[in-house]
Every structure is written in C-alpha cells, then in structure tokens.
Design a protein around this nucleic acid. Structure first.
Lengths: 181, 181
DNA sequence: GTCTATAGGTAGATAGAC
DNA sequence: GTCTATCTACCTATAGAC
C-alpha cells in the first residue's frame, strides 16, 4: 500500500466534516463535488473512492451531523439543558449556520432525498425526542419542543431585522423554559 | 403591439404560479430557468423580459406564495382557524409540498438570499403572527405557534415512517388547540 | 413578448495512469 | 488513494431577429 492504513478513514472523516460545514452554509445542492474536494486539498476524481454518489454523501452527513447534535442533548440536568437551548436559540446560532444544527439547515433537502437518508434522519430525530422527553412532560411535549426550536431558528434566519428575530427567539425560549419546569 | 395588452402580466402571473410550485417541490436552487420556461410552454430567453434575474424571481415567489398563505389565516373565527391548522398539520400537506406552504419549503433558501427577499419574507411572517395573535394569548404565543407548525411539517417531511410522522403531527396539533382555547 | 442561438461556467460521474 | 482528462448535461444570462 502506498498510503498508511488509516489514511482512507481519516480522509473520509475530513470530507464529512468539511462537506457538512459547506452544506449547512450554502445548501447541499449547491455544494459541488469539485468545490468540496478542492477545499479538502484533493481533486474530484478521488471523491468516488469514498462515496458511491453525492446522495450517499448526504446520508453520511446526516448521520454524522445529527449524531453530534444528539450528543449535545444527552445526559444533561434540567439546568444544563436550558443552557443548551439558550445557545440554540441565540443570535450567534442564527448567524452561523455552518457551525450549527443540521436539522435546521438540511431538513428540506433531506425531505427530497432517498428513503435511506430519511430513515437515518428519523432514527436521529426520534433519539433526540427520547432524550428531551426526560426533561418535559412526555413524548408529545418533546416533539413540540423540537418542532418549535427548529422552526424558530429557520424562520429567524430568513427574516431581515434584528427586532423581529429577537422577538421570535425570545418568545420560543420562554416557552421552552416553561415546558421544562 | 403584437400581443394583447394584458398578455405580459398574465404570463408573469403564470410564471409565478408555476415557479412557486416547482421551487416548493424541488427547491429553488434546483429549479432551472430552462425547465421553468419549458414547463410554461416558452423558451428561456423570454424569462428575462419578466424578471431581471433568478434571485428577483425568488423575491417575487416569496411575495406571491406567502401572500396567499396569509390570506388563509385572515378573518377566521377560532373554529375556522382550527380547521386551517388541522389541514396544515395533515398527512396530505406533508406529502404534497408543491401545493403547500412556502415557508416550510423555501425558508432555508430565503435565509441564503438577498436582503430584499428577506425583508419581504419578514413582512409576511410578521403579518401572519399579527393575525394569529388574535386567537392566542399575545404576540409571543403567536410566534411560538408559527414556529412549531413550520418546524413540525419540515421535520415530518424528512422522516421516513408514517408512525413517527403522525406522532409528531398529532403532538403539535394538540398543543395548538390548547393554545387557542 | 417571444424566438433562436450562443456565450461561459459548472454540475455529477467515469476511465485509466501512477 | 489520488491524479488528470474527459463526457454529457445543465446552469444563468445576453444578443439580435421577428
């Protein structure tokens, strides 16, 4: 072998990290294979020794990105969770999609993707709902909380003024806190 | 003039209707000018006598689509509003984005668009919030309701199983009904 | 207002050398 | 595993005829 044994998996991990960031920023459809590989310091031909197709990449991004989000929700006290939620509903999260939650950035594209990708997405969302349900009054309340958090960040990002963004984010944060008590 | 006086505005209206449908189904970025004009029975050159650029088209779509959504919320009794919300949180809305709400389908792309487009989006969202606030306990509650409805449909569309979709949609619908009482 | 033709660019994907 | 080269298809946008 001309490359060290761990080379392939580390390159793959690097591509996942990088493509996740690019897709959250510009959209998955607008993230070209050429541009991704160039950003990784490679050429486009090498992409296909890591992923069979671009749609397989989306599936891997969803697994990787939502897995990380799930970790952020896991094993928290109520107080710790409130800190996480405040960070989620913050201006800095709204202003920096690239470092933020993939559900908010990519779910419309997941909705248009393969069944497999949707299954991965669902598995992760259900796990997040189960985790949140430990802090609120049941599974229904957990679904409601997830929906309003994701919806709020999405809508805030598409509105122009700081005023409207803040009104929206504060309203939802207050509601989340009431649900946890 | 070789064309009747109303020709231009009626063609523009047709293009708006059609491009709105296509963009909600496939995403705005994936909706090519060629494909749009071909679907309208025209050729791509004619596009630019109606819109200066593709990004101006998005602005017009947001105005047109969200204007229609706003109308659906306007002047309802509590009972009539519940019917609208049930339809919004229905399986058929989840399964048919092309005929559905543009906020759910296009907001991530609006978030990546021009300031002008975001301003149009914001104006429409604030108007919807004001309308909803007549049915719930204040403007904060209206923002919360909008967020959870939009988030719920987006997440439901990206999940694979009917079971999870229904759990989510029913949870949010129940919460909406409690907010209206 | 719409047509054809075309510009210049980029998309996803494959073949074969090393 | 990564390279270069290349294919076909599509993209946004413009020019000029009718």
């Amino acid at each position: 072998m001309r490359y060290p044994p761990r080379h392939k998996e580390s390159t793959r991990a690097r591509l996942l990290e990088l493509s996740g960031t690019l897709a959250k920023k510009d959209g998955f459809a607008s993230t070209g294979v050429d541009a991704l590989m160039a950003a990784a310091g490679l050429t486009s031909g090498a992409f296909y020794s890591h992923f069979r197709s671009k749609s397989e990449l989306l599936e891997a991004i969803v697994e990787s990105e939502l897995g990380r989000s799930l970790e952020l929700l896991t094993g928290k006290t109520n107080e710790q969770l409130v800190v996480v939620l405040k960070s989620y509903l913050s201006a800095s999260h709204v202003d920096d999609p690239a470092q933020g939650c993939a559900v908010t950035s990519l779910s419309t594209e997941v909705a248009r993707s393969s069944l497999q990708t949707k299954q991965v997405f669902e598995r992760m969302m259900v796990a997040m709902k189960d985790e949140l349900s430990k802090h609120v009054s049941g599974h229904s309340a957990a679904w409601v909380m997830i929906s309003q958090m994701v919806g709020a960040v999405m809508i805030a990002r598409a509105m122009a003024s700081e005023q409207s963004r803040n009104d929206l984010l504060e309203a939802v944060m207050q509601q989340c806190q009431e649900m946890i008590r």
